[in-house]
């Protein structure tokens, strides 16, 4: 009986420590020091409406936007996930064929691999800079812009982070890139 009481006390104390004090301290820290990140890095437009999260991919299908990596969950940020298709699964090859057709890939101009492979979360916000460059002709044509203007936006939107310092491929955040494109259009009507 006494031992049961000790169990109960241990439950209460550990809950207070781990489930009340610990998250409360973190909440206070996060909301005071980095409130924007702590709320999910949400981006807003000039009217103050939320347009997405800088950390999450969203669907882009129109030709005038850069397209993100494929998503097994169609960019649903409330039910995320990967394709879980194995390398020997014919469905994976089939999906790649459809995507290649969409991008108009050919042996002369193979589609960058990151645009063919779904990310683990289905929400990868990045594509490689090579994958962004690959889409420049389509985006430029749809927007009626010269190629080098679009190239310049990619260069300005490329992220310099630790990954690159350690020799990784330069990455571009697709949502930020598309916002920069829209801003360009708004400034030069």
């Amino acid at each position: 009986m006494k031992e049961l009481l000790t169990n109960l006390r241990l439950v209460i104390l550990s809950v207070l420590l781990c489930c009340v004090a610990y998250p409360a301290l973190l909440l206070a820290f996060a909301q005071m020091v980095v409130p924007w990140k702590a709320d999910g890095s949400l981006l807003t437009n000039e009217q103050g409406q939320i347009v997405g999260s800088a950390q999450l991919a969203q669907a882009f299908t129109r030709p005038e936007y850069f397209w993100p990596r494929p998503s097994a969950v169609n960019y649903n940020a409330s039910a995320t996930g990967g394709s879980n298709l194995s390398p020997t699964n014919p469905r994976l090859t089939e999906r790649a064929r459809e995507l290649i057709a969409q991008y108009g890939g050919s042996t002369a101009a193979p589609v960058p691999a990151d645009l063919m492979a779904a990310s683990g979360s289905g929400m990868d916000p990045h594509i490689t800079r090579a994958a962004a460059r690959y889409q420049v002709p389509r985006v430029a044509a749809a927007r009626g812009l010269p190629l080098h203007d679009v190239e310049a936006v990619i260069a300005s939107a490329s992220e310099v982070d630790a990954l690159r310092v350690f020799g990784g491929e330069p990455l571009v955040n697709v949502l930020r890139l598309n916002l920069a494109l829209d801003a360009l259009a708004a400034n030069n009507p």
């Binding site: 492979a117 779904a118 990310s119 683990g120 979360s121 990954l163 350690f166």
Partner: peptide
């Protein structure tokens, strides 16, 4: 790259 994220390397 199937099932992987780019930002980790």
């Amino acid at each position: 790259l199937e099932g992987k994220e780019l930002r980790f390397g």
